Computed example of a mutant assay.
Amino acid sequence: MLQSSLSVKKARSRRHAQSGFTIVELSVAVAIAGVLLVSAIALVQVVLRQSRANDTVSSVPRVMAQIDKIYSRTTSYTGLNTDTAIGFGAFDGVFNITGASPNRIAGNTFGYPTLVNIATGFDGIANSNTGYVVTFTGIPQSSCSDIVTSAAASGVRGIVVAPEVTAGTTALAPAGMTLNGISIATAGTLVRGPATGGATAVALKGPGLQGQLDVAAMTNAAACGTNNSTVSIGLVNWK
């Protein structure tokens, strides 16, 4: 018996309806796409953060070598600050130099200022200016250990780490490293002392550690082990 035209139309209609996606199927597809997108964004952030950390590490020996070169014929670092360091080329293309002298800023790869300060009284003599510190601010806590470890391997003589209350606002004393309980007399030991905004961990090369920095100690809660999202990392040198 021949099918009626109505039956044929219903059959075609059912086949047409079954060829699309159901709401459940669409919901699952959107959910999967969302998960993939979030994962991709997270991966990009990790890669970007690692790249910035690598750039920071690679800049360390260049910055400090240029400062030491300029002051190699002097007995102190008198006159050294961020602006003068920018002026004699201590900061290369890795840094974003903004502003006008004498208030120029050297932005690091994480977008926060890099500071250069004299370590006054570092040798126990007031205003001797025989030391200095290059401070990278706004360093993500997750990048702290990598930067500290690599900086130590690059030949840096001293490292200071302090958790930041506000990202990019240094937790180290702006000048006079002895304000953080740091002096040449403490070389070879780990020092923990007060600092603006929180505790500080310090490691300086000295006889007690056979000239090696106690990098492992920098993972404590006063330094890279902090719960704060960012830290200030100061790299120290002296005459």
Rank of each mutant, 00 (worst) to 15 (best):
K10P: 08
L48K: 15
G168I: 00
I125S: 10
T109S: 11
F122L: 01
S51D: 09
D146F: 07
S27W: 07
P113A: 00
V148P: 01
V156W: 09
L43Q: 12
F21K: 15
V38L: 13
D68I: 07
I23E: 09
L6S: 14
R73A: 15
Q141M: 11
M177H: 06
N220M: 07
T56A: 07
T170Q: 04
N117T: 14
T169Y: 07
L80H: 04
N237S: 09
A11R: 12
A53P: 08
L209I: 12
N103R: 11
A85L: 00
A42N: 10
V38W: 03
N237V: 11
F110I: 03
V38F: 11
L48D: 12
G198D: 08
S232Y: 03
R52M: 06
R192A: 09
S27L: 11
G20H: 06
M64Y: 03
R12M: 15
S154F: 06
T78P: 13
M64H: 10
R52N: 15
D214H: 11
T200M: 09
L37K: 10
L26F: 08
I184A: 03
P174R: 06
G124F: 02
T75L: 10
D214E: 10
S145E: 08
V28L: 15
A201P: 01
R62G: 11
Y71Q: 08
G158N: 02
R73M: 15
T219K: 02
G124H: 04
I70M: 12
I118P: 06
L48V: 14
V165Y: 08
I67S: 01
N96G: 15
I41P: 06
T84D: 06
S142Q: 03
A216G: 14
M64V: 12
V148N: 04
Q45T: 12
A153F: 03
A152P: 01
A65T: 09
S154T: 05
M218G: 04
R192Q: 13
S145M: 12
Q212F: 13
T56W: 07
Q45H: 11
V161K: 04
P102Q: 10
M177W: 05
N180F: 05
V160T: 14
V24Y: 14
S229K: 05
V24K: 14
I125L: 08
T130H: 09
I147W: 00
G208D: 03
S7N: 11
A29E: 15
S39Q: 08
S232T: 01
D123K: 01
H16W: 10
G158K: 02
Y112D: 05
V116R: 04
T74R: 12
S4P: 04
E25L: 02
S58P: 05
V94F: 09
G20P: 07
V63T: 06
K205G: 08
Y77M: 00
R52V: 04
A100N: 15
A85W: 04
T186A: 04
A173Q: 09
A175E: 14
